[in-house]
Simulated assay, not measured.
Amino acid sequence: MRISHLTVAFSIGLMLLSPLHVLAETAGTSTASAAAGMPSNEGKVLSTLDAPGYTYMELANTEKRFWIAAPTTRVKVGDRVRFEQSLVMKGFNSKTLNRTFDQIIFVNSATIVN
């Protein structure tokens, strides 16, 4: 019985740490995003905000909008960005921007893709 509990706990832990699992929850993506040709870790830049050390980007993926915060990145509205997810935060207050984000994904890197 002990192995069963450990197996279940391990499986749940993997699901919680999986970037695609969290991103699908966060951005509301589904298999439709893959069918539309845009992976769940990509989006089109709708707007940007710069702060010391970070670039905040509002992205659209399929029909969903979401915010990411990446190390300072040179992007412009209309760019398609691929990112490596790190941490999802709800109710994040940026004192630098004097703004609270309902939900934001902090990412390790963001790269412009064609």
Rank of each mutant, 00 (worst) to 15 (best):
M1P: 05
R2G: 15
I3D: 15
S4G: 06
S4K: 13
S4R: 14
H5M: 10
L6P: 00
T7M: 14
T7H: 06
T7R: 14
A9E: 09
A9M: 08
F10R: 12
F10E: 09
F10H: 13
F10Q: 09
F10P: 00
F10V: 15
S11L: 15
I12L: 05
G13L: 13
M15W: 11
M15C: 13
M15D: 04
L16I: 12
L16S: 13
L17I: 11
L17G: 15
S18R: 04
L20H: 08
L20S: 14
H21D: 03
H21Y: 13
V22I: 14
L23M: 09
L23A: 03
E25K: 08
T26V: 12
A27T: 06
A27G: 08
T29M: 09
S30F: 05
T31I: 11
T31A: 09
A32T: 09
A34E: 06
A35Y: 02
A35C: 04
A36F: 08
A36E: 12
A36Y: 08
A36Q: 09
G37S: 05
M38H: 08
M38N: 09
P39N: 10
S40P: 02
S40H: 10
N41V: 03
N41W: 10
N41Y: 11
G43P: 03
G43F: 04
K44H: 07
V45K: 07
V45E: 04
L46M: 13
T48N: 00
L49T: 03
D50Q: 10
A51H: 01
A51P: 01
P52K: 05
G53I: 01
G53E: 02
G53T: 03
Y54W: 11
T55W: 10
T55A: 09
T55E: 07
Y56F: 15
E58Q: 14
E58Y: 04
L59E: 05
L59H: 04
T62Q: 12
E63I: 00
K64E: 10
R65W: 01
R65Y: 06
R65L: 06
F66R: 07
W67C: 04
A69R: 08
A69H: 05
A70M: 00
P71S: 02
T72F: 03
T73M: 06
R74W: 02
V75N: 06
V75T: 13
V75I: 10
K76F: 03
K76D: 08
K76V: 13
V77S: 01
G78W: 05
R80V: 14
R80P: 03
V81H: 04
R82E: 12
R82Q: 12
F83A: 03
F83M: 06
E84V: 08
Q85M: 10
Q85Y: 07
S86N: 14
S86K: 14
S86C: 05
L87I: 08
K90F: 12
G91L: 07
F92K: 01
K95Q: 13
N98C: 06
N98W: 06
N98S: 15
N98A: 14
R99H: 12
R99L: 15
R99I: 15
T100D: 01
T100Q: 11
F101C: 07
F101K: 00
D102I: 03
D102L: 07
Q103P: 01
I104A: 09
I105M: 15
F106D: 01
V107W: 00
N108F: 03
S109D: 12
A110K: 04
A110T: 02
T111H: 10
T111K: 13
T111M: 11
I112P: 08
V113T: 13
N114A: 14
